[in-house]
Design a protein around this nucleic acid. Structure first.
Lengths: 191, 191
DNA sequence: CGGCTATCTTTACATTGTCAAGTTCAAACA
DNA sequence: TGTTTGAACTTGACAATGTAAAGATAGCCG
């Protein structure tokens, strides 16, 4: 790695440094200048790679979302039924944020669930985790021979997502964590 | 009002100015100095009333929450059954934020649903809207002769809250608003 | 009336985002 | 091979912001 950025991969280095700062000191301590300093470059160097702070943060978000998606996909793989896959996804969802509460605040801090649900907008194309859930959900309908209108589907999806997201919120709280058990809600997720 | 603060109610004036700024320009444009300027006082004047920016924001939040509570209480009053009251609360919840999307971002921006659910912590005592919901929910159990453990109750409450909150998220989005109808979910709220 | 205290002002400073102008250096080109 | 060119980076500057310290002011209590 030596001095491999300077000319090389400063962009990724900035993202990594940003993630580290968020993990160690929370998002409120993230500043362009600190990120730059962490990479041993001048305070204006990031502007060669990002239009502004917002764009850096967006890049970090994408990066974290990728890590998130890995866990979700991992959870879904090899499950016998769509129902099992959805349950597993929910568990992975809660587990991921329960292990990285700072990511939760960071990802959904400003936009909230909204970020999740702005399906065809802003998040160029679609929010990957939501896409995955929808795919599993459609499979679930198919496997169980259910027919629903698109509106009904969206409502179901929102309902599932909201519950899981709400649980993740709680899982991120230190005190409540122990008194709450994901398994309690399994069977109520798909009704 | 004239020059009635200067010596009088600067504290409330700062809060009002803060709310106005948030409504007109969003939370990201809220600065201590702007709030002070809007009240025609020096930029350090707020420090006589608030420890720091965080405390001002917290005060504004409390103020907005009060307005929110008024609507919720209004919705609940005079309803024949607890079930009807809960449904009405949900509607009022969505309606309130759908009319004031900036409040949604402001109230739940950083803390998310978490803010709602940190029942006995941080929010000195209890979060009023959640208290109201719990009261209605307990009434609902009573009216329908249902017996549940405290854990089961909390799960139900979280579930209800998550769904409503998720819907409010969507209601705050400009594009999706029209395609979504609160009534669709009424009967699924209490199951 | 004199002083105390809360309220407000002034001044100062560090942090931060951003811009503009310069520098460097590696790769493309002549 | 020598030159050029453009991206990556540095330096220096500026305005906005949060906050601390010290002073002013004025209403109230003794």
């Amino acid at each position: 790695m030596a001095d491999s950025y300077h000319h090389g991969n400063l962009r990724q280095a900035l993202i990594d440094a940003g993630i580290k700062i968020i993990n160690e000191n929370g998002e409120e301590n993230l500043s362009l200048r600190k990120v730059a300093a962490a990479c041993d470059v001048s305070h204006a160097a990031p502007y060669a790679h990002f239009k502004d702070k917002e764009e850096l943060i967006e890049a970090i978000k994408d990066n974290v979302t990728e890590k998130f998606m890995e866990k979700l996909i991992e959870a879904v793989e090899g499950k016998p039924t769509a129902d099992a896959a959805i349950i597993a996804m929910g568990r992975a969802y809660v587990t991921f944020f329960s292990k990285n509460p700072d990511y939760f605040i960071f990802l959904f801090g400003k936009q909230n669930i909204t970020a999740h649900l702005k399906m065809n907008r802003e998040y160029k194309g679609d929010y990957p985790p939501f896409l995955l859930l929808r795919r599993m959900y459609l499979l679930h309908l198919e496997e169980n021979g259910l027919a629903k209108t698109v509106e009904e589907q969206e409502i179901d999806l929102i309902k599932i997502w909201s519950i899981v997201h709400g649980m993740a919120s709680i899982a991120c709280m230190k005190g409540v964590k122990s008194s709450f058990n994901w398994n309690d809600i399994d069977e109520r997720l798909l009704t």
